[in-house]
Write a protein that binds this DNA or RNA. Structure first.
Length: 628
RNA sequence: GGGCCCGUAGCUCAGCCAGGACAGAGCGCCGGCCUCCUAAGCCGGUGGUCGGGGGUUCGAAUCCCCCCGGGCCCGCCA
């Protein structure tokens, strides 16, 4: 049973008109107020064929007035009956908004999965906010959801950071630095120093235009190096000094190979570094309100032989490409397969190299083994990978490879949930050069700003500042559609006015304030009792009626966000109901209403708004607060 | 060069997939509102050739084609 008042109305209308419910659902719309409370866009054919008659609509008890205007069937609802219906759904139902109808599915959501060689940055924050939202809303609608984090410890970057720590020898981590920040710094220093060496070497052999290009590249590198030096001069010196006497590429390649082969001293070095970084991630994510259930090590897939097994299967189908063993997807690159695997028509799929010439494995191949593991271990119907849009190509190759190896069910049910990246104004982020805005610093800055704001208003606690600040970040990241890049700017993330999480939390706190005041005045807040005697005048004013209608449309909005796994409809709706509530709040007294019957019904309406705000904030991953 | 995403008010963004009734918010700017339930609020004003051009349609911000601008990808990186 779904508590959705608008759906009840739709069913009622379809029944009375004798038309299929789906045509009413399809054409359903909320029109401009003067036209009606709801409207249904009818097809011309339907008007002709079914002879839509206004008379028959009288059979629906929620309709008070209807009018056919062109293709629009405009309907005014019976305010009293509809209000009663809406509020009866809200009272005594904690999860108002969600609907558990339909088959329960087992769904794995893999998200964040940031490279464990630098702190989580603003891009990972968008991923975390989106991924946790997806997991939450899938769960709310009754699915079994498991969340996973893929620790990419088998790549080249891991070897680079390991080399950095090797060169540092006994050098200690600065005491006041978070471990993942320290690792990110060592990674950036090692990488930048190596890049400088490479460019300098190339410069010796270059001529003409090439020289100019390399010189500007070198200039840029020197700027990064200077910045890194200023953060940790001693560590920088140790690494750059030690780098002079080694062959960087050879060392990196050796570490990678030893790690894949499970050579004990390399394994213990790499694992201790990555573990430190993961501890840092967990701390950051916990603060951000995100918890991931299963942490998978990429290297485990190699050591267990799962990657080798895939590799053997792939080799049977491999051809040579540019001197390397590769999979060419031409033979299965057909329109019908693309459609089944949701691969864009025009996307050009280059061959997939399956193994480096030194024998080490490549990411996409390892990811095939990982995908199968995710399906297998949770008996998953669907696996969702929350990954930035820039990985569209490898994700498509992954599905094609699965399909080619005969894992068609997995290929068809692996979803790449793609979102656009976060751009930082005026600067290009680069973790390789240590140029990132970390989630830790964003949270600190947000908290600092909220605290300042609270002090301006005479008080407030650290705890509230923390909650409000983090809510602001999350809401900002979720309110932009996933397909659109987010432009990061401190002032827009941390804005505390309308259209922001602080505004929503403030509005929620106001509703709580009303209940507090009511209790103070000795008013009994018995919702069931209030529901039994809703004052006829409650929905008489335009403002209160609008609020009733907004509360009524909450399940539709939730469903849309669920179906599309898109938080933005919910975010926008929440702002709208907050706006309407604040206007009402200023317009007339609620608890101080003299007429007791009307007063109680007004408080009941506040209760409905409060519940809708709470449920949507929680769905967005924001913890409501009672005072602000 | 090819592919994907984006282009809507000075700025940040909804609406586009499933075409319909004068294109919506916030910020900014100008002017008001705290003896009364939280002023992170409310009210009024300001502001748009929906990137440009064609096409489909009774009707296009929305669908199709071309062009322009921005981002991302096209690696024995992930």
């Amino acid at each position: 049973m779904c508590a959705n008042p608008l759906e009840d109305v739709r069913v009622c209308i379809a029944d009375s008109l004798g038309v299929p419910i789906d045509s009413v659902r399809m054409g359903f719309d909320i029109p401009r107020e003067e036209f009606g409370d709801i409207s249904i866009v009818l097809s011309k054919a339907m008007i002709e064929r079914d002879k839509v008659s206004l008379d028959r609509l009288r059979g629906c008890r929620f309709v008070s007035q209807a009018d056919l205007k062109g293709i629009y069937l405009n309907i005014f609802l019976d305010r009293e009956r509809f209000t009663q219906l809406v509020l009866s759904y809200v009272v005594g139902r904690e999860d108002y908004g969600v609907c558990r109808e339909g088959r329960q599915r087992n769904i794995v959501v893999e998200y964040v999965s940031a490279n464990p060689i630098h702190p989580l940055h603003i891009g990972a924050a968008r991923n975390a906010a989106l991924g946790s939202f997806i997991a939450r809303i899938l769960r709310a609608f009754g699915n079994n959801v498991q969340t996973r984090f893929y620790i990419n410890d088998a790549g080249r970057q891991t070897a680079i950071v390991a080399l950095g720590f090797k060169l540092l020898k006994e050098f200690e981590k600065p005491a006041n630095m978070k471990p993942d920040h320290w690792i990110g710094l060592v990674y950036a220093i090692t990488n930048t120093v190596a890049e400088i060496q490479r460019v300098k070497k190339e410069l010796e052999k270059a001529s003409g235009e090439e020289v100019k290009k390399l010189k500007s590249e070198l200039d840029e590198l020197m700027v990064d190096a200077a910045r890194l030096y200023s953060i940790a001069p001693d560590a920088f010196n140790v690494i750059s000094e030690a780098m002079k006497s080694i062959d960087f590429e050879e060392e990196v390649s050796r570490i990678m190979k030893e790690y894949e082969e499970g050579e004990p001293s390399t394994v213990s070095l790499v694992r201790s570094i990555i573990n430190m970084c993961i501890e840092g991630f967990k701390e950051t994510l916990k603060r951000f309100g995100v918890e991931i259930e299963v942490w998978d090590w990429e290297s485990d897939l190699i050591w267990s032989g799962e990657v080798e097994k895939i590799l053997r299967e792939l080799r049977k189908r491999a051809t040579m490409h540019k001197g390397a063993l590769a999979i060419d997807f031409k033979e299965i690159d057909r329109e019908d397969i693309r459609e089944r695997l949701r691969i864009e028509k025009g996307l050009e799929i280059p061959p997939l190299i399956i193994q480096r010439s030194d024998g080490t494995t490549l990411y996409t191949v390892r990811d095939i083994a990982y995908t199968l593991k995710k399906f297998r271990e949770f008996n998953a119907d669907t696996v969702i990978n929350v990954i930035a849009s820039e990985q569209k190509l490898p994700q498509s190759q992954l599905r094609l490879a699965l399909y080619m190896l005969g894992y068609t069910r997995e290929a068809e049910n692996l979803i790449h949930y793609s979102y656009e990246i976060v751009n930082v104004e005026g600067a290009k982020m680069s973790s390789r050069r240590g140029r990132i805005i970390t989630l830790d610093e964003i949270m600190n800055e947000a908290k600092r700003r909220v605290l300042m704001e609270l002090e301006k208003r005479g008080g407030g606690s650290e705890e509230i500042a923390e909650k409000v600040g983090i809510a602001a970040i999350k809401f900002y990241l979720l309110s932009v559609s996933p397909s659109r890049p987010v432009k990061f700017a401190w002032d827009s993330v941390l804005n505390f006015e309308r259209n922001s999480a602080p505004y929503l939390l403030y509005t929620y706190a106001r509703t709580e304030g009303i209940f507090r005041k009511a209790r103070e005045l000795g008013i009994e807040l018995d919702w069931a009792k209030m529901l039994q005697k809703i004052d006829k005048r409650l929905a008489e004013t335009a403002r209160r009626w609008r609020l009733v209608k907004l509360v009524a449309s909450f399940p539709d909005i939730m469903y849309k966000s669920y179906k599309e796994l898109d938080p933005s409809p919910l975010a926008i709706y929440t702002l709208k109901i907050a706006d309407e509530f604040n206007t009402w709040y200023d317009e007339e007294p609620i608890v101080l209403e003299k007429d007791e019957s009307l007063r109680d019904s007004k408080i009941l309406l506040v209760y409905a708004v409060n519940k809708v705000l709470r449920n949507s904030l929680q769905m967005l991953g924001i913890e409501p607060i009672e005072r602000m």
